[in-house]
């Protein structure tokens, strides 16, 4: 077997192990949170036996390890359990399954994340490469200052500024991104324009600066001098000789920012009233809806692990020493 396949399989196994450990941490830490759904729903004044009966109905009275394996078993078969909410004290169960609750929210979040990524990643690569090419120029400094400025403000501030300019002063885009199921694709795109822009402004600086730094770092290498002395133009030097050796650090920082787009967007969701998974998680935490919180946390963890795994693999396969062993 090619050693690279072995390495990738090793990373994959490590990723799965990490995910397993994370699931344990999520489950245990939620269990140790003070208060529970029973108390939250029935109120502080509820009688103890009522709470106990309710807990029993939810299965919360079973030993923790059993509940954990029950949950993991469910996750592996695609069943994330039922939400606690929708039940009430009178015993009527209108609860929905966690999958039903989470799936539309997740797809909304992924839609926004993907849109922002499709703009931000090529943009940062382009800016990173061109600023490296014209380093020290006015262009370089202008881009650096601008991106640093946008990353320095908190994202809600950037969001409100965009609303002020593009929704209030010049009403080009809607300030609310309250998309609904079944609305046409273009309509959705139009509605999420401002949140997507906000996210783009927040993540471009990081990726662009890393791209620039990774390339400039290589420009002092003897093989770059050699390339110049072989008559390569400045853009050839960067694109053909520096960039292929810079993918590993660039991929890492891109993965980090893409993960942020999925798991870190709750503030932006709140600002634009966007029905994403971040809001769902925050709401569920306030009502102690543990199955939903667990599912969200697990999705966030998986996002981080998968994206970093991909970055790792890109780092490996763009390293000719590993791809083509002696």
């Amino acid at each position: 077997m090619h050693p690279i396949i072995i390495t990738v399989l090793q990373r994959l196994a490590l990723g799965i192990l990490t995910l397993f450990l994370v699931s344990l941490v999520i489950f245990l830490s939620l269990d140790f949170l003070p208060g529970d759904f029973g108390e939250a729903l029935l109120g502080q004044s509820a009688r103890e036996d009522t709470v106990a009966a309710f807990r029993k109905e939810l299965g919360l009275d079973r030993p923790i390890m059993i509940r954990y394996f029950d949950w993991v078993g469910g996750v592996l078969t695609g069943d994330l359990g039922s939400s606690f909410s929708g039940r009430n004290a009178s015993g009527i169960d209108r609860s929905r399954t966690v999958v039903d609750l989470v799936a539309p929210r997740l797809s909304n979040t992924l839609f926004l994340a993907l849109t922002a990524a499709v703009i931000a990643v090529p943009l940062s690569l382009f800016l990173g490469i061109t600023t490296a090419l014209y380093r020290g120029s006015f262009y370089d400094r202008a881009i650096n200052v601008t991106t640093l400025t946008t990353i320095s403000f908190p994202e809600f501030f950037v969001g409100y500024i965009l609303i002020l300019i593009l929704a209030t002063l010049y009403p080009v885009f809607p300030s609310l991104a309250n998309i609904e199921e079944g609305s046409p694709f273009l309509d959705r795109l139009y509605k999420i324009a401002l949140p997507a822009m906000t996210l783009t402004l927040v993540i471009v600086a990081h990726m662009m600066r890393m791209t620039r730094a990774a390339i400039i770092n290589l420009l002092a290498s003897p093989y770059i001098e050699m390339a110049r002395l072989k008559g390569a133009s400045a853009s050839e030097v960067i694109l053909r000789h520096a960039l292929p050796n810079a993918w590993a650090p660039i991929a890492t920082v891109i993965a980090f920012n893409l993960a942020y787009l999925v798991v870190g967007v709750v503030v932006v969701e709140v600002v634009f009233v966007y029905p994403g998974i971040g809001q769902l998680m925050v709401d569920s935490v306030t009502v102690r809806d543990v199955p939903v919180v667990q599912a969200c946390a697990l999705i966030f963890a998986a996002t981080y692990i998968i994206l970093n795994l991909i970055a790792d693999i890109i780092g490996i396969i763009t390293n000719p020493r590993i791809l083509h062993p002696r």
């Binding site: 290498s221 003897p222 093989y223 001098e225 050699m226 390339a227 110049r228 002395l229 072989k230 008559g231 390569a232 000789h241 292929p244 050796n245 763009t318 000719p320 020493r321």
Partner: peptide, 19 residues
């Protein structure tokens, strides 16, 4: 450069692009 005047560097290992 590279066509009429060419350069051979000291450390070949460093002067070749690894990629």
């Amino acid at each position: 450069w590279g066509t009429r005047i060419a350069y051979v560097a000291q450390s070949a290992a460093a002067a070749f692009n690894p990629a």
